[in-house]
Computed example of a mutant assay.
Amino acid sequence: MISSRDNARIKWLFKLQSKKYRDQSNSFLVYGEHSLEEAKKNGFTLEIYTSNPNKEGLLISEELMRELSLTETPSDVLAICKKKEYPTLSNKILMLDDVQDPGNLGTLIRSAVGFGFSTIIASHQTVDFYHERTIRATQGNIFYASLIKAPLIERIEQLKKLGYKVYATSSYGSLKLKEIIPSDKLVLVLGNEGQGIKQEILDLADYKVMIETSHIESLNVGVAGSIIMYEWQV
């Protein structure tokens, strides 16, 4: 059993809590039995660690597992997983303009996979896809998504040439959600929690969409995106 933070393997696990090392190694950490099972099912697992001697994996102390988990109720298992190397384009694409909250991002990834938007393109300023809170919020669905970071204006122009229609959410949208018959190939753009979508991206949209609400000005981006993707699912 490994119990020292000075162990080389443990040092590497702590380093993978940093985006810098996740990017350098093209790998990331997942926590919990469910996420681990999804990783194994899809062939993304590299190494498994556990504090439970009755479970699969390299045994580490409960204290180290608590320190690595970063939550009040730590799991007894974690794994190093590899990132998907060759993202694909689905007919329905979710695009994110500077979404900052890891929980919102994880919720959107989970909903996107569930409703057929399996390609997710995010600006470079969007929070890391592989942040621990994002991973947890996806509930293992991250292994079914194609995740891409890219300059959004450039990518929108490319997708339009491929026949995609671009729908951007806006509080002042010209079309209400229920009025829209979505295209077979579409890009749904969601914006930053506080600032929304940048004007230069809104200007490229084929349609601006709003969700009608009662008594509230706007919805959380994770909620709004999930509602639209549900309505437009395959």
Rank of each mutant, 00 (worst) to 15 (best):
E157H: 04
E157N: 08
Q158G: 00
Q158S: 05
Q158D: 12
L159V: 13
L159F: 07
L159D: 07
K160V: 12
K161G: 05
K161F: 00
L162N: 14
G163A: 09
Y164L: 04
K165Y: 08
K165D: 12
K165T: 12
V166C: 02
V166F: 00
V166R: 03
Y167T: 05
Y167G: 05
A168L: 01
A168M: 02
T169K: 03
S170V: 09
S171F: 10
S171N: 11
Y172R: 15
Y172W: 15
Y172G: 01
Y172C: 08
G173E: 11
S174L: 14
L175I: 05
L175Q: 12
K176E: 15
L177N: 01
K178W: 13
E179R: 00
I180P: 03
I181M: 08
P182D: 13
P182E: 12
P182F: 13
S183M: 02
S183Y: 03
D184C: 01
D184A: 10
D184S: 10
D184F: 01
K185D: 09
K185S: 10
L186T: 09
L186N: 11
V187T: 03
V187S: 04
L188H: 09
L188A: 14
L190T: 09
L190H: 05
G191C: 06
N192D: 13
E193W: 03
E193N: 03
G194H: 07
G194P: 00
G194A: 03
Q195V: 00
G196A: 00
G196W: 03
G196S: 04
Q199A: 09
Q199P: 01
I201S: 00
L202V: 05
L202W: 02
D203W: 00
L204I: 07
A205W: 01
K208M: 14
K208I: 10
K208A: 05
K208Q: 15
V209C: 03
V209E: 07
V209H: 03
M210T: 15
M210R: 15
E212W: 01
T213L: 02
T213C: 03
T213V: 07
T213A: 06
S214A: 14
S214G: 05
H215Y: 10
H215E: 15
H215A: 13
H215D: 13
E217R: 04
S218E: 09
L219D: 08
L219A: 07
N220W: 10
N220V: 10
N220S: 04
N220Q: 02
G222L: 08
V223E: 07
V223K: 02
A224E: 13
A224P: 08
A224N: 12
A224F: 11
A224Y: 07
G225V: 11
G225P: 04
G225D: 13
